[in-house]
């Protein structure tokens, strides 16, 4: 880990907060660069190729592109603080309003995926470590290697064909069947929760059948990572003297696992939970395309293809913020969860 943790937990914490602040500022600078500086013709992208020179100049002024770069950056910052992410040419609505719909959909997908990957990955990793070099370990290794190597969008397509088209045991693309769409009043924006709040169990189960496939496909890569890490953490613990001491007291496998090893790797597991959650948000971008899932990923890629930079930049910002916050939380998890770092 970073070398400055030696200066006491408080100093390390302050350092990490500073790091987080710098990262966010850097993210803003990068998105600014991507949105305003890199596109060869940001004005043309908005007004179109057929616009008159007057309209072009007017838009250029409206965008503030006649101003110096620094001033443009300051006004970009000011807009951000006010929650003004600009208009999306694609939908003709403020980007913020679009995000309010898209973000919960992605969050719902990624959250379910992280739950699935944890429920499967942690036990598999533990089983592999406890049965090192047996067939269980080999199978876990193959599962995790393939998970590290599989293109998630392709896996999604294959899954859709097999489970939806052939076996017909999973719902198809989208969040619910077409005739259920728009029937649930949006409260949280997450359809599983909203349908329950509205007492619509039929819609809830329909939504479950739709989300389970993309969530599982998305979960696979994260599960591969979690399995691998859990196995490594556990093997490291199995070599420790306290495990021998626990066995010398007469504790059996199950007790050593539940009462001795798990408490020792909890913090590490929380850390990889946060890291894989961030990774899932990214993976969701391509998975959403395959499953026509109306989340950030789909919104972002549609915007990418028509060069709607406001929307692209906003999505990069939101996913980047989530990603960084999760990394930040995973780093400071040590300070709160590990008794060794308390009271010194």
């Amino acid at each position: 880990m970073s070398s400055d943790t030696l200066g006491g937990p408080a100093r390390a914490f302050a350092g990490r907060v500073l790091q987080f602040a710098i990262s966010i500022f850097a993210l803003i600078a990068v998105t600014f660069t991507i949105g305003r500086l890199l596109p060869t013709d940001p004005v043309g992208a908005i007004v179109g190729e057929l616009a008159s020179p007057e309209a072009y100049a007017a838009m250029r002024e409206r965008l503030g592109l006649d101003q110096p770069v620094i001033w443009q950056f300051v006004s970009y910052l000011r807009d951000l603080v006010h929650g003004d992410l600009g208009f999306a040419a694609m939908t003709g609505r403020p980007v913020l309003d679009d995000l309010k719909i898209a973000f919960p959909a992605t969050l719902e997908l990624a959250t379910l995926a992280i739950i699935i990957s944890f429920i499967l990955g942690v036990p598999l990793g533990l089983a592999a470590a406890f049965n090192r070099d047996t067939w269980i370990d080999h199978i876990a290794r193959i599962i995790s290697l393939v998970g590290h190597s599989i293109p998630v969008f392709w896996f999604g397509i294959v899954g859709l064909v097999v489970f939806y088209a052939w076996l017909q045991i999973a719902g198809g693309p989208g969040r619910v069947d077409v005739f259920y769409e728009g029937l649930v009043p949006p409260v949280t924006g997450m359809i599983l929760i909203d349908s329950l709040l509205a007492g619509e169990t039929a819609i809830f189960w329909n939504a479950v059948s739709h989300i389970i496939l993309p969530a599982s496909m998305l979960a696979y890569a994260a599960m591969a990572y979690i399995t691998r890490m859990t196995r490594a953490f556990t093997l490291e613990q199995l070599n420790q003297d306290y495990v021998v001491a626990a066995r010398a007291k007469g504790a059996g496998q199950a007790r050593i696992l539940m009462h001795h090893i798990l408490p020792n790797i909890t913090v590490q597991l929380v850390t990889i939970l946060a890291i894989s959650y961030g990774g899932l948000l990214e993976g969701a971008v391509v998975t959403e395309i395959v499953f026509s899932w109306p989340g950030l990923g789909q919104y972002m890629t549609s915007a990418l293809l028509i060069g709607d930079m406001n929307a692209v930049v906003a999505c990069t910002m939101v996913i980047g913020l989530m990603f960084m916050t999760l990394n930040f939380l995973s780093d400071i998890a040590y300070a709160f969860l590990d008794p060794r770092t308390g009271e010194g």
């Binding site: 993210l27 990068v30 998105t31 991507i34 990214e282 972002m300 930079m309 990069t316 996913i319």
Partner: peptide, 12 residues
């Protein structure tokens, strides 16, 4: 930084 998303934005 989220590398895939950033790569997407740059490519765009």
């Amino acid at each position: 930084f989220p590398s895939l998303v950033l790569a997407l934005a740059f490519a765009a």
